[in-house]
């Protein structure tokens, strides 16, 4: 199992500091959720951690190796990345989109070795996409397409999984299914990091929360330890009620702070 480590990552664009000295460690077996208001630098931090953006300071390593020194394929075999969903350029069938998840293993759509075909089948089953394999991607609903992208990321079967708002377009049922899927992947030993906008979902499923504000990580810890009304007011500017019960912590946002 692999470990992704970010140390003091900073990034500037157009004279503005988007990420300021962010450090975290993504360990196997934990579901970490990155939360923070719009424009707090969450997506940029993910890209920096994956080596897709050159940091202006700091470094990110996977199992001790600089991410920027890894070849794109070697990096992709360590960490699957699910960026915010964009429309596909061509109306390719669902099966081919998911097969692209095996790209770093040398796969091209239509040419899958037995191992790759099995990984694709497992991802299709996990995301409940059976029956949609031959549909053209442009005929899917937003939620279906989001699950196809998720299946694509899962098909990589990489030790680490990094996702940027994977549940943004989903119905409540699928939001919970996807969050549970991530939790299951973490139980199975993967290190999972995902940006999450839905705070209730984060409170319900995350093992660990990274709180981000103005490009900096302002808190890092378990839901129990870090989710407080004061921090919600500070980071998100909202007033919230937090109820602790036997099955965890329930969050109700009541209005602006």
């Amino acid at each position: 199992m692999s470990v992704l480590e970010a140390r003091g990552l900073s990034f500037e664009a157009g004279g503005r500091r988007l990420v300021a000295g962010a450090s975290f460690r993504l360990a196997p077996g934990t579901l970490t959720m990155l939360i923070g208001p719009n424009g707090s630098g969450k997506s940029s931090l993910l890209r920096l951690a994956l080596g897709l953006l050159p940091p202006s300071a700091g470094s990110a390593t996977i199992d001790g190796a600089e991410v920027r020194s890894l070849s794109p394929a070697a990096r992709a075999r360590k960490v699957a990345y699910l960026p915010q969903t964009r429309p596909l350029a061509w109306p390719v069938p669902v099966r081919d989109v998911i097969a692209l998840g095996r790209f770093a293993h040398g796969v091209a759509p239509g040419r899958l070795a037995a191992d790759d075909a099995r990984a694709v089948a497992r991802a299709i089953a996990a995301c409940r996409l059976a029956g949609l394999e031959d549909r053209a991607a442009d005929t899917l609903s937003g939620g279906e397409l989001a699950r196809v992208h998720l299946a694509r990321a899962l098909a990589a079967e990489a030790p680490l999984l990094v996702a940027d708002e994977p549940v943004a377009a989903l119905d409540p049922l699928y939001q919970h299914e996807v969050a549970a899927l991530f939790a299951r992947a973490a139980r199975a030993g993967h290190g999972v990091l995902t940006v999450m906008h839905d705070l209730a979902l984060a409170a319900r499923y995350a093992d660990r929360l990274l709180w981000m504000k103005d490009g900096a990580i302002v808190a890092d810890g378990t839901v129990e330890d870090t989710m407080t009304p004061a921090r919600l007011a500070d980071v998100f500017g909202v007033a919230a009620r937090i109820d602790r019960s036997a099955d965890g912590l329930a969050l109700a946002v009541t209005g602006p702070a």
Partner: peptide
Amino acid sequence: TLGEEAAEGI
């Protein structure tokens, strides 16, 4: 097909 960012990602 996935867009440039996701293509780099895979």
